[in-house]
């Protein structure tokens, strides 16, 4: 059986697993923190988006590399 396609996309998919979990943790714990101390909503939200941006960097690098690296189809 022949499988066609870009192997880089699989690489990107693997690279997105970690950041996906990370972003989930960031937002989950962020919401928990807001639920515990609603008066700190502003700074917490800021930190949530900051953490999301930092965690997301890895997935973005994977995305770039998926396009940037040369590939050979089978």
């Amino acid at each position: 059986m022949e499988i066609l396609g870009n192997l880089n996309v699989i690489g990107y998919g693997l690279a997105a697993i970690g950041p996906g979990i990370g972003v989930g943790i960031v937002f989950g714990l962020g919401n928990q923190a807001i639920a515990r101390q609603p008066e700190l909503r502003g700074p917490l939200q800021l930190n949530i988006y900051l953490g999301m941006a930092l965690v997301e960097a890895l997935a973005i690098l994977g995305f770039v590399l998926a396009f940037a690296l040369p590939y050979t189809s089978s």
């Binding site: 941006a53 960097a57 973005i60």
Partner: peptide
Amino acid sequence: IVRPVTHAVRLFA
């Protein structure tokens, strides 16, 4: 390096 690159690529991607 990573900071500006991700800054641009996040939006683009």
